[in-house]
């Protein structure tokens, strides 16, 4: 080296990178994915592979022919979007719908705003909500969990716990079943324990902070707890609410998406409480049995506002002289 390099301080870097964070989240999703594969078998595998592959493919195409920037396909964010989308879908959904969902997630949800870092809404949720509104029947018929099932489109269907609560029918599964995921639902959302393992991994690796998941879960627990105390006949217990539907998956993996969540601890708490309240309101008073996706998207829209008005705790803020 004949010439020395001159640059402003600092001269060392921690070695963190975008792809490391994305890979970390994907690793944290593995337990939830495994539970999905166990209970839904072939269908889960097909849906997951299709979503991941088509998300990467669409990102590559758009990057190459429309944005013409440097390639970001390999940083893992497209694969993560695909995986999250798959985990939010029922495992008996036709492949072509998955492809459409991926196109909407990547094309409209992410790349139309300029790629990673610029999207105001969580791309995977955009894809999911698009499918939910366009194909309500397919998106709300969930297969019954059968270990290592080889069924795909022809899988036997079962209602979700939340649909049972909403329609006041059927027998709500035991808390243990809710916890390990032995119930109907989207392929990645059923097992609370698998998602909690993922949460621990994310926290240990310092990929996310505790603020968002804890504030969402605590808000839902307290709010549904109050409702349950008021009228236990009408409103389900907070434990059932916590472990059913997409709440766990949403709170741990969807709401904590870097790009669309607030950027300081105080803002994160406000955001989490907002998601919790909207979720419970939709679940108990709205037309849909489940509202986590909508709640996250609505609070995504408030994120810039939260960032503008809620500032982090400054050094020396409380001291008065």
């Amino acid at each position: 080296m004949d010439k020395l390099i001159i640059s402003p301080a600092p001269h060392i870097h921690g070695g963190d990178s975008v792809s490391k964070n994305m890979t970390g989240v994907i690793i944290a999703l593995v337990p939830a994915l495994l539970v999905g594969l166990y209970f839904f078998g072939l269908g889960a595998l097909v849906v997951t592979l299709t979503a991941v592959a088509s998300c990467i493919f669409f990102e590559y195409l758009i990057q190459k022919f429309m944005l013409k920037g440097s390639s970001t396909v390999m940083d893992g964010s497209a694969a993560l979007t695909g995986l999250l989308l798959a985990l939010n879908l029922p495992s008996n959904i036709p492949v072509w719908m998955v492809v459409i969902g991926s196109l909407v997630a990547i094309g409209i949800g992410k790349m139309s705003f300029g790629g990673l870092g610029n999207n105001p809404f969580n791309p995977a949720l955009i894809g999911r909500v698009f499918l939910l509104i366009s194909f309500p029947v397919e998106m709300t018929t969930w297969p019954r969990p059968v270990p290592f099932s080889a069924a795909y489109l022809d899988a036997e269907t079962a209602p979700t716990t939340l649909a049972m609560i909403k329609g006041h029918f059927g027998e709500i599964p035991s808390t243990l079943d809710l916890f390990i995921g032995n119930m109907g639902g989207s392929l990645g959302e059923i097992s609370a324990v698998a998602i909690l393992i993922g949460l621990v991994y994310l926290l240990v690796k310092k990929i996310i902070t505790w603020h968002i998941p804890v504030s969402i879960l605590a808000t839902v627990f307290i709010f549904t707890g109050i409702l349950n105390l008021v009228n236990p006949e009408l409103y389900a217990s907070p434990v059932v609410h916590l472990f059913s539907g997409g709440l766990m998956l949403g709170a741990v993996f969807m709401a904590t998406d870097y790009v669309t969540s607030p950027m300081n601890p105080r803002g994160m708490l406000v955001y989490g409480i907002g998601i919790g309240i909207i979720t419970v309101v939709i679940r108990t008073f709205g037309a849909y049995p489940e509202g986590v996706s909508f709640a996250i998207l609505i609070m995504n829209a408030f994120t810039p506002l939260i960032n503008t008005y809620i500032k982090p705790k400054r050094f020396g803020e409380r001291v008065k002289i």
Binding site: K3, L4, I5, I6, P8
Partner: peptide, 13 residues
């Protein structure tokens, strides 16, 4: 050139 500048491409900086 006697050295190589590796900071932000901005004269003021």
């Amino acid at each position: 050139r006697m050295n190589e500048y590796d900071g932000v491409k901005h004269c003021f900086i």
